[in-house]
Write a protein that binds this DNA or RNA. Sequence first.
DNA 1: ATAATGACGTGAT
DNA 2: AATCACGCCATTA
Length: 85
Amino acid sequence: MKLSFADRVRTIVRGIRKGQTMTYGQVAAVAGQPGAARSVGTVMKNNYDDSVPCHRVVRADGKIGDYNRGGEARKRALLQEEGAL
DNA sequence: ATAATGACGTGAT
DNA sequence: AATCACGCCATTA
């Protein structure tokens, strides 16, 4: 069975430890598709699995990035709780 | 199969 | 510093 890009991304993000963060571009690169940062976003958007800490994926330009469970504010709060900020 | 979409990235205004 | 414009690419319709 072949793992889609989305599956690899979810796996990678699941592996981000508490207090750590990765940029969309980083995840894409590790997933084997450098330059597909945007696609990582697409995946996150369609991913509703709570086991995937999508809030640990941030933008490369230092911004927080969006979040499908309460927006940027929520995401920022979670990261602060984990000490990622 | 083709077109539209968007939780990005970088460089130019 | 803030915004705009364009390229990028998997996913979705």
